[in-house]
């Protein structure tokens, strides 16, 4: 029995050490994989830009690739199709705006491929990463009926030489706040119907707006496989007017200008100064008195 126990322990030890060594060897044998992601953004149907992200995946670890140079091309790996040369930042990301000189190439097709080529990789024959995007546009409209405010967002895609309604496109509809998009209705996301329209009722009453009471409505399609990222914004006077309180800067405080000294400080300072200097003046008068006594004695 004792022997069995001893053997069991030995067996357990062997299993444990072999597991550890396997893990260590396994970790060493994991090949690092370089992943490049490209996201297309269309903001208000006017500004089009791309965000490139380069990461190194090693097992379960993901590491951003800093200061790595890439070339982005539109459709063809040719100098005239160059969108931008970019360098990744500390987060492994880089941004490129699609330049106006590529307009004719952009207009010439319904969908486009973006080719990402790593510069100075030392691998001449490396296959470029490809990302396909279909041309699309997004619009936002508002309506009010019986005290109900509605927001409708239309998404269209360019196909077969015409703009067609893009159905089943998921998006967020809401109000732009500092921390992100605050949903306008009760749902967090909406999907376009067969007519390419998604509708949300505006239920966020009494939201603080700007000095005129304006809120910025936003509809955002995120990471759509076919259309990329589409964003549209529209200011609406549905918020509460926010008045900036400038009184803060006009109050009497220790940090204010000399014309806004706190009254308690003025009172204390002047009391002390007048008290002490009054005494000094009194003492000077005493000196004059001593002098006068001398004159009268003479």
């Amino acid at each position: 029995m004792k022997k069995l126990k001893k053997n069991k322990l030995l067996l357990l030890f062997l299993v444990f050490t072999s597991m550890i060594s396997n893990t260590v060897v396994g970790q060493d044998s994991i090949v690092a994989k370089e992943i490049v992601k490209l996201q297309y953004f269309n903001r208000n149907n006017s500004l089009q830009y791309l965000i490139l992200e380069s990461i190194l995946k090693k097992g379960k670890q993901i590491e951003p690739q800093k200061s790595k140079a890439f070339k982005i091309f539109l459709d063809k790996d040719q100098p005239e199709n160059l969108v931008a040369k970019v360098m990744t930042d500390d987060n492994g990301k880089a941004k490129a705006i699609i330049p106006p000189q590529l307009k004719s190439i952009w207009d010439s097709a319904e969908q486009h491929n973006f080719l990402v080529v790593a510069e100075a990789s030392g691998k001449e024959g490396e296959t470029p990463s490809e990302f396909t995007i279909r041309k699309a546009k997004i619009s936002i409209d508002t309506s009010s009926a019986d005290g109900t405010k509605n927001i409708s967002v239309t998404v269209m895609k360019y196909k077969n030489g015409e703009w067609l309604a893009a159905k089943d496109v998921e998006m967020k509809i809401g109000v732009q706040r500092l921390g992100g998009i605050l949903p306008a209705g009760e749902s967090d996301s909406y999907t376009t119907d067969s007519t390419g329209i998604a509708t949300s009722e505006f239920k966020k009453d009494s939201l603080p707006g700007n000095e005129y009471g304006d809120l910025m409505l936003v509809a955002r399609v995120e990471d759509n496989d076919e259309l990329g990222n589409l964003i549209v914004e529209k200011p609406v006077p549905w918020g509460v007017v926010t008045k900036t309180d400038n009184g803060f800067f006009n109050q009497r405080a220790l940090w204010s200008t000399r014309f806004r000294t706190p009254l308690w400080l003025l009172f204390m300072a002047y009391t002390i100064v007048i008290g002490v200097w009054g005494t000094i003046i009194y003492l000077v008068v005493q000196l004059v008195k001593i002098k006068k006594i001398a004159n009268s004695t003479a």
Binding site: Q286, I290, K291, A294
Partner: peptide, 15 residues
Amino acid sequence: FWKGTKEQFQISDKA
């Protein structure tokens, strides 16, 4: 002006 009179001393001591 210091003559050392009693009044002068009084004023001076007080000061």
